[in-house]
Design a protein around this nucleic acid. Sequence first.
DNA 1: CGGGCAACTTGTCACTGACAAGATTGCTCT
DNA 2: AGAGCAATCTTGTCAGTGACAAGTTGCCCG
Lengths: 192, 192
Amino acid sequence: MSTGRPYHHGDLRRAVLAAALDVVASDGIGAISLRDLARRAGVSHAAPAHHFGDKTGLLTAIAAEGYGLLADALAEAVPGDADALRELGVRYVRFALAHPAHFEVMNRPHAVDGADPELLRQRARAGESLRGGVAGVPAERRGDPDQAVLAAWSLAHGYATLCLSGGIPAGADPAGTFRSLTGLLFSGPAME
Amino acid sequence: MSTGRPYHHGDLRRAVLAAALDVVASDGIGAISLRDLARRAGVSHAAPAHHFGDKTGLLTAIAAEGYGLLADALAEAVPGDADALRELGVRYVRFALAHPAHFEVMNRPHAVDGADPELLRQRARAGESLRGGVAGVPAERRGDPDQAVLAAWSLAHGYATLCLSGGIPAGADPAGTFRSLTGLLFSGPAME
DNA sequence: CGGGCAACTTGTCACTGACAAGATTGCTCT
DNA sequence: AGAGCAATCTTGTCAGTGACAAGTTGCCCG
């Protein structure tokens, strides 16, 4: 037909993922249209379906990729650091701010297929990275360690979410601000 | 025409809002369809538009209502309580768990008209309730009070969000769990 | 070389949001 | 009372969307 472009795209999957991340980052999940993504990639409207099945499949792939990136980021934490929990939190916040679109999709259970094997796999990886990072702490920490993890996770997740939704002024160095925030948590072994 | 039902619904606005909250609570914002809401209310497909303009208008109304409810909840806090921040946090978490649909819509900037006067009004009310509750604290608290508010807000917001998205086991008494979590924050005037 | 498979296309259908124009109702003002 | 009037709701319509079906292209491997 001589349209100028080849019949096969080459890496349509990546192209669609990238376009989807752009849209999510600028206009949110609700603005995603498979047909629009197809247009951006220069393919026919039904081409993306072959790679992702349907819209849920596309978002699930993004979420899985996001958990993979998060797992990598958490795994970089120095094992055995006494401040492991704090550093993991900082990495969590940094991940969210560096990959806002992934982060948004990851936190939309309704938009994703929670039973997808790849999603479960990457999420499990992230969980392992987290546990691995925490495991190193000397355990002289008082109190319930599960509670400490929960508090740190809530703080990091809440801070990141508020930054992204614009609820927070968001200074020049959000991650640094978060780190100082954690100073209010676990301020020392002597408490109560 | 004798369709059995009257031409005027009576309180279509409330009916549509209620139906929308049901849908959001069970299937998320993405599952909302104006036409479906109209069917549920037993009116024609274009009736809701008269009350809300468009989909964004509907979601904006929900968010505004949510901020109003939040403002009311925060205003109940005892002024002058030394643990004001903690109690405000507990109320924030309770609000989120009691009104998950409102909470979800409130945290979707892209789905809402951020310039809507009613939304701004209710959000300002919530802000005032918050500041009013915090103002009572004796100020013997060390450190930056803004930072303390930010930490408490992040913790409450993160905990509530994680509870709602299913990321947290969510025991029998989430609000109580949160209260004990705050024990790790501001654990006493002597820190550092 | 030829079968087979993955990638992509065209075509279609029901559904949705938004808008326009008309019908109905209740309220107000005289 | 009754005429106007504005709010409420209806019907009709259009482009855009997601999902599916069936056909086409191009590549790889036996």
